[in-house]
């Protein structure tokens, strides 16, 4: 494993986008940053800027208005990048499956690497998911 891919594994910067969720998963993502879970020990920082970020965390189902924002954000991110969908509604639509303005899962708009089920997903599950997503960053360019 080269020094570059080690560094990629050790420093995934996050971009968090709320794509129409109920806030449940969003606050769990924030909770994962706080002392009890502290995902910064894996080098994870919430950057808030698509150009700097490596991993896009999306919560909630895509809808007719914000899918453009989501696609923009994804395109602004530089390679290598990964996408994690947090929460049942982002995976498939979940409880919002029959809401008229919901397109369904995030994977209808952008390619998704890791799905996290749960309504709302626990911080532990989010940590697991980031670990899974690192696999993609590691394999980049090989």
């Amino acid at each position: 494993m080269g020094i570059l891919s080690t560094s990629r594994m050790k420093s995934p910067w996050l971009l968090h986008f709320d794509c129409g969720s109920c806030n449940g998963c969003d606050i769990e993502i924030l909770a994962a940053l706080t002392p009890l879970y502290d995902i910064e020990r894996f080098g994870i920082v919430n950057m808030g800027n698509p150009k700097h970020a490596d991993v896009l965390l999306v919560t909630g189902p895509a809808n007719h208005r914000n899918y453009r924002v989501l696609r923009n954000l994804y395109q602004q991110m530089r390679d290598p990048k990964g996408v994690i969908v947090v929460g049942t509604c982002g995976c498939t639509g979940g409880v919002f499956h029959n809401c008229p303005n919901v397109l369904g899962g995030i994977d209808k708009v952008i390619p998704v690497d890791v799905y996290v089920p749960g309504c709302a997903a626990r911080p532990e599950a989010i940590i697991d998911a980031v670990v899974l997503a690192l696999g993609k960053l590691k394999a980049y360019g090989k």
Partner: peptide
């Protein structure tokens, strides 16, 4: 941006 149409 987050309208889902829950009332409907």
């Amino acid at each position: 941006y987050i309208h889902r149409g829950i009332e409907k």
